[in-house]
Amino acid sequence: MSELLSQDEIDALFDALTTGEIDVKEIQEEEKKQAVKEYNFARPAKFSREHLRTLEIMCENYARLVSNYLSGYLRIGIPVQVISAEAMTFSEFNNSLSNPVVLAILDVKPLTGPMLLELSPNLCFAFMERILGGAGRGMEKIREFTAIESTILDKIVQKMVSLLREPWENVIEMRPRLNKIETNSQFINLIAPNEMVALVTFNIAFGGIEGLMNLCIPHIVIEPVMDKINTRFRFQSGNDSDEIRVDKNVEALLKRTNIPLRAVLGTTTMTVREFLQLEVDDVIMLDREINSYIDFYVGNVLKFKVSPGVYKNKSAVQIKEILRKEDD
Rank of each mutant, 00 (worst) to 15 (best):
V108P: 11
I57R: 12
K109A: 14
T89M: 07
E92K: 09
L103Y: 15
L97T: 12
Y69G: 05
P110F: 08
E60S: 10
L111Q: 02
N61R: 07
S91F: 02
L111D: 00
D107V: 09
I76E: 14
Y69E: 12
P100H: 09
L111C: 07
V102P: 00
L111M: 10
K109D: 13
F93R: 00
M58V: 06
T89V: 09
A104S: 15
S67V: 04
I105P: 00
S98D: 03
S98E: 05
V102M: 03
N95R: 14
F93M: 07
E60L: 10
L65W: 07
T112I: 13
I105E: 13
P100W: 08
N95D: 14
L111I: 04
P79L: 05
S67N: 03
T112H: 14
G72T: 08
M58L: 15
C59E: 05
V82F: 04
F93E: 00
A104K: 10
C59M: 10
A87H: 04
A85G: 07
S91K: 11
L74K: 09
M58N: 02
S98V: 12
Y62V: 01
N68C: 03
V82R: 00
N94D: 08
F90N: 08
I57Q: 08
P100G: 05
P110R: 03
F90L: 09
C59G: 03
I105Y: 05
N99I: 12
L97I: 07
A63T: 02
M58A: 13
Y73K: 08
L103M: 02
D107H: 15
A87R: 05
M58F: 01
A63I: 07
V102G: 00
S84I: 07
D107A: 06
S96T: 06
T89R: 14
S98P: 04
A63P: 05
S71Q: 11
G72E: 06
R64A: 07
Y62W: 08
T112M: 11
E86G: 01
V101S: 13
I78Y: 10
T89L: 11
S96P: 06
I76Y: 03
D107T: 13
S84M: 04
M88Q: 08
I57M: 09
V66W: 04
I57K: 06
I78W: 01
S91V: 13
Y69P: 02
S84K: 12
A63R: 03
S67K: 01
V80G: 05
I83F: 00
L65G: 03
